[in-house]
Write a protein that binds this DNA or RNA. Structure first.
Lengths: 196, 196, 196, 196
DNA sequence: AATGAATGAGGTTTCATTCAT
DNA sequence: GATGAATGAAACCTCATTCAT
């Protein structure tokens, strides 16, 4: 059973993720976070050292969950199946934590960036899982030996992220399986027309 | 020959794009923009109604250039060649206007967003060009008839954008043709290993 | 017992009235108001939505007090006595809240005006009380039946205001009763010389 | 025939008076003045040393005209007739130069005031004419000997000013003669009802 | 005689943070 | 454990003034 403090922190997490996803880190104020969480402004500072610290913990927490979801999906599968499963897991994660996904896109792909560490974290953890799967597929002979694994992993991650956000924005009613199928087809090179 | 005002506006455009790409819209101050452009702060406001207006015009201008580059690349080519060319053009654009590309990713993929109009603009103009190419490929029998063109276009755009930015960040020395080749292979489904 | 917030707001009211009376609304800065009230600039904005809102609440508050003072003075008196009393009350009010009276003159008699609402308020509330007294005097047969009550009320109000401010500026030592007597004589038509 | 410069200055006078009457001196910008006058901003500074100088010349010019109008009206009349004529002249002046009258009220009745000189000027010139008339009436035995001439002059001036501006605002269609008649009745003490 | 782009001091407003309750 | 009034640095923006044309 969570303590009162736990519950307050959780409420602040959620409020912060939603607001930052909508307006960005800088444009989100501590006042707004407190209001949406239903607590007084002082309470934010009773629970977190600063606005930046709240955001940092948030990112860490979210990226950890994303990476864990991807790792779990890949475990114990044959390489190509694992790739499909990882794509499915990324889609599912975005479907459930859409706000966090937008936050990821919006705040981490900067040039100099105040959150460059976080960005590296994401590449290393989330894209790293995809790269591992691709490497296994290459080792298994499923993908050709000279594939640039790092670049391909980055491509897969970005492709899924972009498509997933367009999905949530433009056709949220569409079932996940549908989107998943299209993405897998794209990845497997199955979009060619009838042999001529 | 550009007027004095024209030249000043151009300098402000450039300064703003770079800064916003690095720190985001909210975290970039008008002072910084003015300083980098080498003008006084008041000059920013003499030339643009507000910080938001400057950013708005900026997005419009950049998206227009990107869409034009993609359209030009596609023109007069057979569908699948056009797809390769469009990917190449997007890569080239990002290589040249990296700052603008980061800004696009960082500021437009928000949920509610103050720049939702801009986001729609991008989807309609830039991704629209890709969708047109894919549609032509389907009509030509190069891609299968039931392909979800909209989703595929979004996937291509996001994949290229993500890869390109990782390329600029992690291995800027690598030649564009190299990256282009990998992306085209991915798109054409040529990454399968030796037939088993 | 007033809350802390109440006390701060009151201090801000007083500081603002004095400064605006001296320099006008536009020429008075929020910095000055905060300094005279002995609080930080941010505190002004914690207590009022904006400089304009502070001024608006100020006017409302002051006009309400003025109208109340005039109404109280008139109550339970015969019409002509009531008129004398109302003039006395206006004089006393200006004597005590000179700053507010100057502010009234300076900021509300504009043409298009951002404070036209406030101006109308004043006419309706303060001048309205005088008009009521005059109307009662007409009904009582003390003043002639075809008197333009609205115009006369406006005349009385303006006459007293102008005289009172000249009094405070030029001969502040002079007792109120003296000024009151002269004004009442003027109003009652007792300034004619010896019958010829 | 006025020179080109003369005409420009005149247009700037008029634009400035109207704008300052509406929004006050501080709230009126040089940009607005230039725009309403139909000239470029630089032209304002080609013709006047500063915004304050423009306003100063404006006040001087206007007060001079007002005082002259009052003096002319009084000349060569018997004291009490002169009083009526002066009131009529003040009304006529305000009817014609309403904007200037509002400006006078709004900017000169301040406490500390940046335009205190101007305020003194007005009292001395405009109210002074009225005081002279009243003094003559006292000397002539038309008004009682112990009348406080200064205070009465101030009362007359303020009464007329207030009534005139309410007239222009609330019932501009009403003829001047009507307003004049009511004011004169008030001044002559002719508002008493039927003798009881 | 007039212009309008440019300036920078100074204004209003926002907001992360502190602290007494 | 939580509050909310207060703070002041720093943001956006305005505007009187200058000056090259």
């Amino acid at each position: 059973m969570p303590t009162r403090r736990e519950r307050t922190r959780q409420r602040l997490y959620e409020a912060a993720v939603e607001l930052i996803a909508e307006h960005g880190y800088s444009a989100t104020t501590v006042d707004q976070i407190a209001e949406r969480a239903g607590v007084a402004k002082g309470t934010v500072y009773y629970n977190f050292a600063s606005k930046a610290a709240l955001f940092g913990e948030l990112l860490e927490y979210g990226v950890e969950r994303l990476a864990a979801a991807l790792r779990t999906a890949a475990e114990g599968r044959a390489p190509l199946d694992a790739l499909d499963a990882v794509v499915g897991a990324e889609l599912a994660f975005i479907g459930q934590y859409e706000a966090f996904a937008r936050l990821l896109l919006a705040e981490t792909w900067r040039a100099g960036g105040d959150w460059q560490n976080a960005a590296r974290l994401i590449r290393e953890r989330a894209i790293g899982v995809i790269a591992d799967v691709l490497r296994a597929a290459v080792a298994n002979g499923d993908l050709r030996a000279d594939l640039d694994v790092g670049m391909a992993a980055s491509a897969v991650f970005g492709m899924v992220l972009t498509v997933a956000l367009d999905w949530r924005t433009l056709q949220p009613a569409r079932p996940l399986t549908d989107v998943h199928a299209t993405l897998v087809d794209l990845l497997r090179g199955r979009i060619a027309g009838p042999a001529t």
